[in-house]
């Protein structure tokens, strides 16, 4: 009996020590977050990210310092500088431009990003950065759009100050000759530019690139009766087709990376995640309202059909 009590005591002591060790292994940390403002897609990822983090033990040890700059390069750089000056433990960036702006500052802290556009980040990655990336299959969205309506002129809404947007424009231009489409480049640097840009423009359809500015502009677009495809979602804008990486999966992958860093892994020890997780959303109600032909492929392949 005495031997049993002694063993039980030892067992309890071991459990207590490992609990103390576990809770001390993760000290109180601060994660600086750059979340470009008014981009609902990033907000959706952030909601999923917080949920995922709350479910883990490390969540209790974290303070979030969130910056919500307007998505232009200067505001994004300023946000990055503030977080560096605040000496946060990790800088967590939403989207390509916030990531590039931060990496250009060469911070000592690990930089983790989510929803980064792979081709645009290639030049900027460092040993101290890793994250979740994606690459939109441009030909798919062009093909689906073309299958609904014969498109001779395709307007592409992009921002030359956002490199992901520029890469997508290039790819659309490479792809369109195969579908006998002419590309009309529509530059916007501020969301309000969209009205001016679309004045006197005659296009059969529009593609909004992943530019944050274009995404904000999309919310002011409802009065136009032109089929719109968007490479970032915008529920309040009802694009006919949207093709974008799943916000939930992006968040889950980013949370897993951040947890690994908090547990001591270096960013260069964690592989970038660029796995396929695209969602194809088709707005059937909007397509019917515009009298578009509904291709069977779209209905069968869509991740979600909005009626």
């Amino acid at each position: 009996m005495r031997q049993f009590k002694f063993r039980l005591l030892i067992l309890l002591l071991i459990s207590f020590v490992s609990f103390i060790k576990e809770s001390h292994a993760i000290e109180k940390r601060t994660i600086g977050v750059i979340l470009p403002s008014n981009v609902t897609y990033y907000e959706e990822i952030h909601t999923h990210f917080l949920k995922k983090m709350e479910a883990t033990i490390v969540a209790r040890q974290i303070d979030f310092l969130i910056q919500k700059p307007f998505p232009d390069p200067i505001a994004l750089s300023n946000a990055a500088r503030k977080l560096i000056a605040h000496n946060v433990d990790i800088i967590f960036c939403y989207g390509t431009e916030a990531t590039i702006a931060t990496l250009k500052e060469r911070p000592d802290q690990p930089v983790i990003y989510v929803a980064g556009y792979t081709p645009a980040l290639e030049r900027y990655r460092t040993k101290n950065s890793t994250g979740v990336e994606f690459k939109t299959p441009i030909s798919s969205i062009t093909r689906y759009l073309n299958s609904m309506k014969e498109i001779k002129t395709l307007g592409v809404v992009y921002n030359p100050l956002e490199s992901d947007s520029l890469y997508q424009l290039d790819e659309i231009m490479r792809c369109c000759p195969f579908y006998k489409m002419t590309v009309i480049k529509l530059i916007i640097k501020r969301p309000s530019d969209i009205r001016q840009v679309l004045e006197n423009i005659n296009v059969d359809a529009l593609i909004f690139t992943t530019s944050s500015i274009a995404n904000i502009a999309l919310s002011n677009f409802r009065e136009y009766r032109i089929p719109v495809a968007s490479l970032l979602p915008r529920r309040d804008a009802k694009p006919v087709i949207s093709l974008y990486p799943s916000p939930k999966k992006q968040a889950e992958k980013a949370a897993a990376i951040i947890q690994a860093v908090l547990k001591g892994k270096k960013p260069h020890e964690i592989a970038r995640d660029s796995g396929a997780d695209m969602e194809l959303i088709f707005n059937l109600g909007e397509a019917q309202r515009m009298g578009l032909r509904i291709p069977a492929d779209l209905l069968t392949e869509a991740t979600e059909v909005i009626h």
Partner: peptide, 13 residues
């Protein structure tokens, strides 16, 4: 064809 489109659309690697 759906398996092909899944890869083209980036839903599967």
């Amino acid at each position: 064809d759906s398996a092909l489109l899944s890869v083209l659309d980036g839903k599967a690697d």
